[in-house]
């Protein structure tokens, strides 16, 4: 043992190096995050969750939801899209230009038959802007769009990838790592009704056929209807409904959890996650199905 100082130095460097890389640097990077302006405006993102939703985060944590649900959407890339919405008056010239821009439309007789039509879709900004200029010069109206894509986005789990700012007001952050159930990063966007979440927590199979989620009935109270039924009582389908004269009422924990789930909507366009807000209808089909079961599970009915 005549290399004591050397071994000490090597161990010290290894430990302090990893401490710096895994603790100090990340906290310097992420600890300084602040609210940022959304793209194209001065609206700040994120905003703190409402109080009840903030309490719901604690329930989410206590019930171990994060063991089966992730809150992180992946993204494989971003592409530009040019949607032709109006052909203008010079339709012959526009049709020729569209055929030249979009090879997939070159064979069709009238590419302007069903507008809007995507005339450019790709990742090269230069081509995209050139196409946009060409069409605008001909008097047509083309809407430029920046669209993130990827497997998670195709499932309808989010509109863009999850970034650190999405968790700015959460402590602790619960991004999860397992996907036994669907990703919840934007569950408030696709299922915005807290009553749906309450029914689903009480009896998952009543809302999603073949759901693997365990029921959380202890978050609810089945009690005899007093003078008048409670306005909070769940409207359950017959096979899950309590016996006549009884009603199922959510506890404050269940209400907080539902408020938290509805508050999960990571859809802001930011500099670090650029995209265009599209006015297309929100995806509804198959979005709440767990990974790998999308084909067989019917879409959840969002009943009032």
């Amino acid at each position: 043992m005549n290399r004591g100082p050397l071994i000490f130095l090597a161990a010290f460097l290894a430990l302090s190096g990893s401490w710096y890389t895994y603790v100090v640097r990340p906290s310097m990077q992420l600890g300084r995050f602040q609210q940022t302006n959304m793209l194209g405006g001065s609206t700040l993102y994120p905003t703190a969750r409402p109080g009840l939703a903030q309490q719901g985060l604690e329930v989410y944590r206590a019930q171990g939801c994060a063991y089966c649900h992730s809150q992180q959407v992946g993204q494989e890339g971003t592409r530009f899209q040019l949607l032709l919405t109006e052909a203008g008056t010079n339709t012959a010239e526009v049709a020729t230009a569209v055929k030249k821009l979009a090879p997939q439309l070159a064979g069709t007789a009238d590419p302007l038959a069903s507008l809007p039509v995507a005339v450019y879709s790709g990742e090269r900004r230069y081509d995209f802007e050139a196409a946009s200029r060409t069409l605008n010069a001909l008097g047509a109206k083309a809407v430029p769009q920046v669209v993130p894509y990827g497997a998670d986005i195709a499932r309808g789990w989010g509109k863009r990838r999850t970034i650190a700012e999405d968790f700015l007001f959460d402590s602790p952050t619960l991004p999860g790592s397992q996907r036994v159930g669907p990703d919840l990063a934007s569950v408030g966007l696709r299922l915005p009704d807290p009553r749906w979440h309450l029914r689903h927590l009480y009896a998952p199979a009543s809302e999603v056929k073949g759901s693997k989620m365990p029921p959380y009935r202890y978050l609810f109270e089945t009690r005899r209807v007093a003078r008048a039924p409670s306005p909070d009582a769940l409207q359950l389908p017959r096979e899950y409904a309590p016996p006549a004269g009884y009603e199922v009422v959510p506890t404050p924990d269940a209400l907080a959890l539902a408020a938290y789930l509805v508050s999960l909507r990571a859809d802001a366009p930011l500099f670090s996650a650029p995209m265009t807000i599209t006015s297309t209808a929100a995806p509804t089909a198959d979005t709440n199905a767990p990974a790998g079961a999308t084909a067989t599970t019917p879409a959840p009915a969002i009943n009032q």
Binding site: R32, G40, T78, E129, R161
Partner: peptide
């Protein structure tokens, strides 16, 4: 800290900002 995958660099990210 502003650059996340799939963007490779700040200029790559900048090129995807909506027009």
């Amino acid at each position: 800290p502003q650059v996340y995958a799939p963007y490779k660099s700040l200029s790559h990210l900048q090129s995807f900002q909506p027009p």
